[in-house]
Each structure stands twice: as structure tokens, then as C-alpha cells.
């Protein structure tokens, strides 16, 4: 019993130490933003590897999620003779929840893990240390551009995911199952609000982009510099990001839509 408590205490101490290190890391990282903005070519390179390389995964997934929503939604709604509401159903679920959450989960798996592995290996092969000895701050030079790239990319990828999803729902619902095209769009436009729905979705994706990039880069930077350490850190990135996304999504949803 005492052992268990000791373990718990130890775990707590480690967690706090890690939280402290990661906050310090975030502060350092944010201080590098101006340096990166002066040299946008650093950012461009990272936007390529973080954003462009995730593009296909995200759009294809968005298309399929939209198509499945169209199909399932149609069967459920047509039972109540309400298949004109298909557009509303597809768009609401995508813009409010599925878009931000699924895109963020995919992004954590695709780009987050890659960031952790890259930074972790740079640490393991003494590249970060070497850079420090060349009087170059690795956080400003290596970490901050990747952070900004993640932070910028995810909202754009989420918008793509949701848009392609709505088109996918249209493809199945309107082109294949014969829902009226006019009511697909008009009912959607009538029930979705720019601020309440679209903007809140975008805010969610901005928060997720911030958190995933932070977790991924910190796990890489904090990794034990061995192959095993890097592989554990990569796993932690995906797991912790997933928990963070789902937890934050609940909190944000409650704040945004639970106004009554």
C-alpha cells in the first residue's frame, strides 16, 4: 500500500516536472516566432513537409467521411421522410465536430509523429547539440518553424476536410440517391451560421493545431536520445495528442454550444 502511494507520488512528481519543462519549452519556442517571420523560407520548407504532405491523406479521408455520412444520413432521414435535411446533417456534423476532430487525429498521426521522430533523431545524432555549439539556438532554428507550420496547416487542412466532406455527401446524396440538389444546399445554408458553426469549428482546429504541434515537438525534444527513446516518444505523441484532442473537443464544445 505504501509502495503504491510512493509510486503515485513519484508519478505525480514526474508529471509536474514534465509539465514545467514543456511550459518552459513553449515559452522558448514562442519567443522564436519573430526570428522565423524574418526568414520565411524556413517556414516554407516546413509548411511543405507538415502541410503539403498531409494534403492527400486529409482530403481523401474527408471525401470518404462525407460519403459515409451521406449514405448513413440518407437511410436514417428517409425513414422520417426528411431526406431534404441531408445537407444540414452532413454539414453540421462535419463543420462542428468531425472535421476538426478527425482532421486533428489524422494530422497527429501523420505530421505529429513525423515531427517527434525527426526532432528526437536530431537529438540522438547530436545535431541539436552540434547546433548549440555553433551558437545557433536549435529551438529558434529548428523547433519554431515546425511549430508555426503545424499551427497554420491544421486549420487549412480542417477546412479542406470539411469542404470535401460536404461535397462527398453531395456526391452520394444528390448525385446517387436523388436528394433534391436545391434543398441540400439551401437547408444547409439556412441552418448553419457563420459565427456559431463555421467560426467555432475553425477555432477548434486552431486550438488543436497549437496543442498537437506543441506536444509533438516537445516529445521529440524531451525524448531519451536512443532509438527506443525516440520510438516511445513518437507513440506518446500520438496517444497524448489523441487524448488532448478529444478532451479539449469536449471542453470547447461545452463552451461554444452549451450556452443554455
Amino acid at each position: 500500500m505504501i509502495d503504491l502511494l510512493t509510486q503515485l507520488g513519484k508519478k505525480t512528481r514526474y508529471s509536474f516536472a514534465k509539465l514545467g519543462r514543456s511550459s518552459f519549452f513553449l515559452q522558448q519556442l514562442l519567443m522564436g516566432i519573430t526570428d522565423v517571420l524574418v526568414r520565411p523560407q524556413l517556414l516554407s520548407k516546413q509548411l511543405y513537409s507538415v502541410g503539403v504532405l498531409s494534403f492527400f491523406l486529409i482530403t481523401i479521408s474527408g471525401l470518404f467521411v462525407g460519403m459515409v455520412l451521406g449514405l448513413q444520413g440518407y437511410y436514417i432521414l428517409s425513414n422520417f421522410g426528411a431526406d431534404e435535411a441531408l445537407g444540414v446533417m452532413v454539414a453540421t456534423s462535419l463543420v462542428r465536430e468531425l472535421g476538426p476532430v478527425v482532421a486533428a487525429l489524422l494530422f497527429a498521426g501523420r505530421a505529429g509523429s513525423a515531427l517527434t521522430a525527426e526532432i528526437g533523431l536530431m537529438k540522438a545524432t547530436e545535431q541539436l547539440s552540434g547546433m548549440e555549439m555553433m551558437a545557433i539556438d536549435p529551438i529558434k532554428r529548428i523547433v519554431t518553424p515546425r511549430f508555426l507550420a503545424g499551427f497554420i496547416s491544421l486549420p487549412l487542412l480542417t477546412a479542406l476536410f470539411s469542404s470535401v466532406g460536404v461535397l462527398g455527401g453531395h456526391l452520394i446524396g444528390v448525385s446517387l440517391l436523388g436528394v433534391d440538389e436545391g434543398s441540400y444546399w439551401s437547408q444547409m445554408q439556412a441552418s448553419l451560421d457563420v459565427y456559431d458553426d463555421i467560426l467555432n469549428g475553425v477555432i477548434k482546429s486552431i486550438v488543436f493545431g497549437f496543442v498537437i504541434s506543441w506536444i509533438a515537438l516537445f516529445e521529440g525534444y524531451d525524448a531519451i536520445p536512443t532509438s527506443e527513446g525516440v520510438s516511445c516518444a513518437t507513440t506518446r505523441t500520438v496517444v497524448n495528442s489523441a487524448f488532448a484532442i478529444l478532451g479539449l473537443d469536449f471542453i470547447l464544445t461545452a463552451l461554444m454550444f452549451g450556452d443554455i
Binding site: 516554407s44 520548407k45 475553425v202
Partner: peptide, 29 residues
């Protein structure tokens, strides 16, 4: 090539945001 792809990515992303505002929601009406 890399610059072009990054530019394309940003443009398509912003277009998607625009699409969401105008076509999916009621901003246009």
C-alpha cells in the same frame, strides 16, 4: 516546385475556408 506546392496548399486551404463561409453557411444569404 516546393514553393509552388506550398503556395497551392495555402490557396486551396483558404478557398476551402471561403467555401465553408459562403456555400455551407448562411453568410451569403
Amino acid at each position: 516546385k516546393q514553393d509552388t506546392l506550398v503556395g497551392l496548399f495555402i490557396a486551396v486551404g483558404i478557398a476551402a475556408l471561403f467555401f465553408m463561409a459562403m456555400q455551407i453557411s448562411n453568410l451569403s444569404t
